[in-house]
């Protein structure tokens, strides 16, 4: 277990800009090799839904131009952590966050931070393809329009986003048709194209392939590898092969039942380079999970 040098982090109580070190590198997690250059990190992140403690003390760092996978059994809080990263949890009544999430050193939960601006930098792709009930073109153009992006030619921007999402050839003749006419896999790539059209910095993906067949899945995986050159990607997946195939680093979560209440609180077990985590996990729970003995 390596002790990591301090990354610039701020807790919500601290005035902005003051650096702290991760004092006691979360004793309950095994933290392996962390990225040299982190775009985002979570600092003692705790998430609550009302009184329910959903996620306990997560310290993670997301490397620039890397794909970070979050894996773990159902209900361990992967989606919860992911939704915190661009403040989508704000939309859930009763959800509450403690600790800090830093984006380029700025705590996005600090006072005065506009969650809408946060989401313009940190985009999101959802589990179920969710195109708008509009044309393919308007699906892509919606994001740039609502955030008031200055674009010389919307047509070029739409084409660029669709090309980047490897969808252009399939849809170039039906841009004005409803996005609902596309297959599930195409819809998901459209949703990815829609996200990159607003030129975010980080893309969050919550089980982006779970509703897709193997061929569509491999297309989305290829796309992720492609996008990694320009974006930082954080992906939740249930598919360990997928995590092993696409990700640079992997975070393994599990849910620990509370002795008194029986509530299952999610926590980070191990975080390391993907190849090390899958070949040589340090924690017994990680080993059990990836070898299929649990979960």
């Amino acid at each position: 277990m390596s002790t990591q040098p301090a990354t610039a982090t701020t807790s919500p109580d601290e005035p902005l800009g003051i650096s702290l070190s991760i004092d006691e590198e979360a004793k309950h997690s095994v933290i392996g090799e962390v990225p040299a250059e982190a775009v985002m990190d979570t600092y003692h992140l705790n998430v609550f839904y009302g009184d329910f403690h959903a996620v306990h003390d997560v310290n993670l760092q997301f490397g620039k131009n890397e794909i970070t996978a979050m894996i773990g059994p159902s209900g361990c809080g992967k989606s919860t952590v992911l939704r915190c990263l661009n403040r989508m949890n704000d939309l859930i009544p009763g959800a509450r966050v403690e600790g800090a999430i830093n984006y380029h050193g700025q705590n996005i939960y600090a006072k005065g931070i506009d969650p809408i601006a946060v989401r313009q930098h940190i985009g999101m792709v959802f589990q179920k393809p969710n195109p708008f009930p509009k044309s393919i073109y308007d699906n892509i153009a919606y994001g740039p329009r609502v955030i008031g992006m200055k674009v010389d030619s919307m047509d070029d921007l739409v084409e660029g986003a669709l090309r980047d999402a490897a969808l252009w050839d399939e849809v170039k003749d039906k841009l004005k048709q409803s996005a609902f006419g596309l297959s599930g896999g195409q819809q998901q790539r459209l949703c990815i194209a829609r996200t990159i059209a607003t030129k975010p910095d980080v893309i969050l993906m919550d089980e982006p392939c779970s509703a897709l067949d193997p061929i569509a899945t491999s297309k989305v995986e290829d796309l992720m590898m492609q996008l990694r050159k320009d974006y930082t990607i954080i992906v939740v997946t249930h598919n360990m092969q997928q995590a092993a195939r696409v990700s640079d680093r992997t975070a393994f979560f599990t849910a620990k039942p509370d002795e008194t209440t029986g509530n299952r609180t999610g926590l980070l077990v191990e975080f390391d380079l993907t190849k090390r985590l899958f070949s040589n996990p340090e924690d017994k729970r990680t080993e059990d999970y990836i070898s299929g003995r649990f979960g």
Partner: peptide
Amino acid sequence: DIRQASYGLGAT
């Protein structure tokens, strides 16, 4: 889903 997609793109 529709709302989430919209918020996720940075819409108000």
